[in-house]
Design a protein around this nucleic acid. Structure first.
Lengths: 251, 251
DNA sequence: GTCTATATACTGATAGAC
DNA sequence: GTCTATCAGTATATAGAC
C-alpha cells in the first residue's frame, strides 16, 4: 500500500534524524565538558526528551560513546586519507604523522573516545531485559573498529612500502612494513595519549619535534622535511629546526 | 612526655598500616575485577570497615587509584632499572623495550591505572567539604608522576646516548636523544595500550615483532638481538625471526 | 510505536552521633 | 576514629499513557 510505505519511510527518517540529534547533543556535551560529564539525564534534557527515550534509540550509554568513537575515527581518516595521495613516500609519512598528532591535539575529547576502553559487562541490574527495540546486534566483542583500524594501518604500511620500493631506503623491502606501520601508529598514539596526561611526558619539548625525531630515525634524517622536497637549493638557513608545519600542541 | 610520644607513634603506625591494608584490598579488587569494579563500598567491606572510614585515610577514590598507579610505576621501574646496567647500549635498549611491553601485558590492570586520566573535578555533591584530615596536599595538577616519568625517560635517553657515544650508530650525538627517548616511550606505551583494546591493532602479529621492527628501524637492524652479541659467528640459521626472548602477549 | 513517569539498585561523598 | 544515616547523583528497567 502506497500510503503505508510512505508512512514507514517517514517514520524511519524520523528515527535516524532523532538518532542524529542525540549524537549531536552528546558530541556537544563531550567536547565541552568531557566524557565523564555525559550522563543520560543531561543528554535527554539537552534534546528535550526523557531519559528513557534515549534507550529506544541506543542500547546504552556505552553504545553512544562507541558511536562517537567511530565518528572520531571517520573524521581522522577523512583528514589522513587525502594525504595518502602524496607521491613522495617520505613526505607522505611526515604529513600523515603530523596530521595524526595535530588531530589528536585539536580534538582531545573525540580522540579519547576513539581509544577508550569499553565499560565492561553491564554494571547495574540488567537481570531480565527484553531489549530488541534497537536493532544494533553488534556483539561489541572487540574495540578498535576493525575496518577503521585496518585502513589506518594500511595508510602507514602503504607509504612504507612505497618508500621501500624507491630503493632509497636502507630498510629495503624486508616484509616488515606491516610491523613498522603498527609501530608508527603506536608511537603516534603514545605521543598524543601521553601528552594529554600532563606536562610530565613532553616536558618543554614540542610534540612535533618528538615525532620528527622518530621519523628521522626510521626514515633517515632526510629531505622532504619542508613540503616541497625539490626546492632543496641553498635556501636561507633552515629555521633552526623549529620549522613546524603543524600547529603546535598544548603541553 | 614519654607515654604520650609512644602513643603517637603507635597511632601513626596504625594509620600507615591501615592505609596499606586499604591499598592491598584495592589492588586485589582491581587486578581481579578491573578498575571499574573498585567501589568504596566493596573496598570498605573487604577490609571490614564502613565506607565513610576510607575517607579518613584517602581523600577520594581517585586518590586511591592514583596511589595504585604510582605503585605500578614503581614496580615497572624496579624491573627496568636493573636493565639499565647492561653495557652494550643496543642490547640494553632491546631488553628495556621488551621488558616494558612484557610488564604492560602481564599487569594489565596495574598498567591502566598508571596511565589513567584522573576523574576530573569532583563529580557529585562536594558542596561544603572541610577536608584536612588527610595530609595529602598534593594538588594533583598534572598526572604522570613527575619523578617516575623523568626516570623512565632517562633510562631510554641514557641508553641512546651511550649508543651514540660508541660512534657505531648513524644517528650520532645530534642532541636529540631526549626526543627519541620520548618517541620510544610513546611507541612502547602505544603498543601496550592499543593491544589491550582488542585484536584490531596487532592482528595476528605478535607485539614482540612490532617492537623489534621499531627498534631495528631506529638502531639499525643489527646484532645484539640474542643476548650475547659477541656470539655472532655463523650459528645455525636464526630461528626464522621468531625468537622471542620475552613471553608473548595476549592478542 | 514513542514517550513520560516511576522504580531499582547502584555510585562517591558528607554530616553528625558516639 | 568509627559508625549510621543520608544526600545527590548515576544507569538502567518497566508500567502505562497517548
Amino acid at each position: 500500500m502506497n500510503s503505508a510505505e510512505a508512512k514507514d519511510l517517514r517514520a524511519a527518517a524520523l528515527r535516524v534524524a532523532l538518532r542524529a540529534r542525540i549524537l549531536d547533543a552528546a558530541r556537544r556535551i563531550v567536547t565541552r565538558d568531557g566524557f565523564e560529564a555525559l550522563s543520560m539525564r543531561k543528554l535527554a534534557e539537552a534534546i528535550g526528551y526523557s531519559p528513557a527515550s534515549l534507550y529506544l534509540h541506543f542500547e546504552s550509554r556505552d553504545e553512544i560513546a562507541r558511536a562517537l568513537g567511530r565518528e572520531g575515527f571517520a573524521q581522522l581518516l577523512a583528514q589522513l586519507e587525502p594525504l595518502g595521495a602524496i607521491d613522495d613516500p617520505r613526505e607522505r609519512l611526515h604529513a600523515l604523522a603530523h596530521a595524526y598528532v595535530a588531530f589528536g591535539c585539536a580534538h582531545q575529547q573525540a580522540y579519547r573516545l576513539m581509544y577508550r576502553e569499553p565499560e565492561e559487562g553491564g554494571r547495574a541490574g540488567a537481570h531480565g531485559a527484553t531489549r530488541a527495540t534497537v536493532a544494533t546486534v553488534t556483539p561489541a566483542e572487540h574495540e578498535l573498529p576493525c575496518e577503521e583500524a585496518a585502513r589506518m594501518a594500511d595508510l602507514f604500511a602503504d607509504a612504507l612500502e612505497a618508500l621501500a620500493a624507491t630503493g632509497n631506503w636502507r630498510h629495503g623491502a624486508r616484509g616488515d612494513s606491516a610491523l613498522l606501520a603498527r609501530a608508527l601508529w603506536a608511537m603516534l598514539h603514545g605521543v598524543v595519549a601521553l601528552s594529554q596526561l600532563g606536562p610530565g611526558f613532553a616536558h618543554e619539548a614540542s610534540l612535533t619535534l618528538i615525532v620528527d625525531a622518530a621519523l628521522d630515525g626510521w626514515l633517515g634524517a632526510s629531505a622532504a622535511k619542508n613540503g616541497d622536497a625539490a626546492a632543496q637549493h641553498n635556501a636561507p638557513p633552515p629555521p633552526a629546526r623549529t620549522a613546524k608545519k603543524t600547529p603546535d600542541c598544548p603541553s
